[in-house]
Computed example of a mutant assay.
Amino acid sequence: MTITIFVPRDAAALALGADRVATAIAREIETRGIDARIVRNGSRGMHWLEPLVEVRTERGRIAYGPVKSSDVPSLFEAGFLQGADHPLCRGRTKEIPFLARQTRLTFARCGVTDPLSLEDYRHYQGMKGLEKAVTMQPAHIIQQVTDSGLRGRGGAGFPTGIKWKTVLEAPGAQKYIVCNADEGDSGTFADRMIMEGDPFVLIEGMAIAGLATGATKGFIYTRSEYPHAIETMIAAVEIARKAGILGPSVLGSGKAFDMEVRVGAGAYVCGEETALLNSLEGKRGIVRAKPPLPALQGFLGRPTVVNNVISLASVPVIMDRGAEFYRDFGMGRSRGTIPIQIAGNTRHGGLFETAFGLTLGEIVDDIGGGTASGRPVRAVQVGGPLGA
């Protein structure tokens, strides 16, 4: 039986030598004549363990990390292909405390699948939301999203269902879905992780948004500083188009929706939705006055939904599992889950997805493990450079 080894292709892992590790593993496999294959998956979000190498065994996936290329021969000597013990062994991946404590809905497949395998995506419950959406009336899709309590994950927290309803009811022969993937704040990487690790969930979410609002065209606007995400998204869109997920008839429904990836030119201001729309139109990226709202007069003056990556990537699970399932997570007006990005002088930097309701102390001390330097925590910046 062919053994499967997972080596991340996420930018964070690549920066720490994942390509060199994959090359070293391939060399050992060839030299030893072993029947094994390497899958380049996304990141699990445990950045202090990158590159995190996993092996599929009868006991489940066993994790080793952080692995350097120089560690690879000793891993093979120890029998890591059978999940054997080694100083870098972390046990079963899903039992690593940082992962085990999470509620992974939006990031359920990140680090689990081959990002560009549609077969993998479907195997792990992908496309279920879109399959349901193509059988529903637009107003019913929007009602489900509204009932889930999903609010914008880009920072403003505007209810997603209300934005979609406005676009659905706005007059206009042509409407658009624009995904704001211009993730410019330092210490943020959730959008990038989705695009590199699970691009089909974003495509599925955008297609559902198109069906819900009557939009037939979508754009992902991302940053030139994200070459791996751009490459992965372009390839995924092409695969989805060939599979009939995008195009003149989404999943054979007779309803059209297609999309493309557009790349910004390094302007931080284009993370603001109206500046982004100006840039998409080929104009200088400057903030527009509101009103009119983009939902009424957005891209090329047409009704436009502008949502960020996490908002759109949260839609498939809502459509698949139902509004009540999603709404049961969280507290108050903040329903569902939120990806918490932990960076800086911290022992366990990375991405932690959980229901709303954690205290700052839990995030910094328990999940983040305190400071990497071992000194007391003096200050925490919440929400990036523009936060508090």
Results as ranks from 00 to 15, higher is better:
75 L>M: 06
71 D>N: 09
38 I>H: 07
40 R>H: 01
104 R>F: 06
119 E>Q: 04
79 G>S: 11
86 H>P: 07
47 H>Q: 11
46 M>H: 14
41 N>E: 12
32 R>A: 06
65 G>I: 04
36 A>M: 08
55 V>N: 01
107 F>T: 06
23 T>Q: 13
108 A>V: 08
87 P>N: 12
96 I>W: 00
64 Y>F: 11
34 I>P: 03
76 F>G: 04
56 R>V: 07
93 T>P: 03
30 E>C: 07
54 E>K: 02
93 T>W: 05
115 P>R: 04
63 A>N: 02
78 A>R: 05
72 V>I: 03
87 P>A: 11
113 T>V: 15
114 D>F: 05
57 T>D: 04
88 L>I: 13
87 P>K: 08
93 T>Y: 04
102 Q>G: 11
104 R>I: 04
25 I>T: 04
85 D>E: 15
40 R>L: 00
28 E>D: 02
41 N>L: 05
77 E>I: 14
94 K>S: 12
62 I>W: 01
115 P>V: 01
87 P>S: 13
99 L>N: 05
112 V>Q: 10
119 E>N: 01
56 R>Y: 07
58 E>N: 09
45 G>W: 07
45 G>R: 02
115 P>F: 05
86 H>G: 06
39 V>R: 13
44 R>L: 04
46 M>K: 13
34 I>N: 02
93 T>C: 05
58 E>H: 07
120 D>N: 11
23 T>E: 15
118 L>S: 01
90 R>D: 02
99 L>G: 07
94 K>N: 13
30 E>M: 12
25 I>M: 03
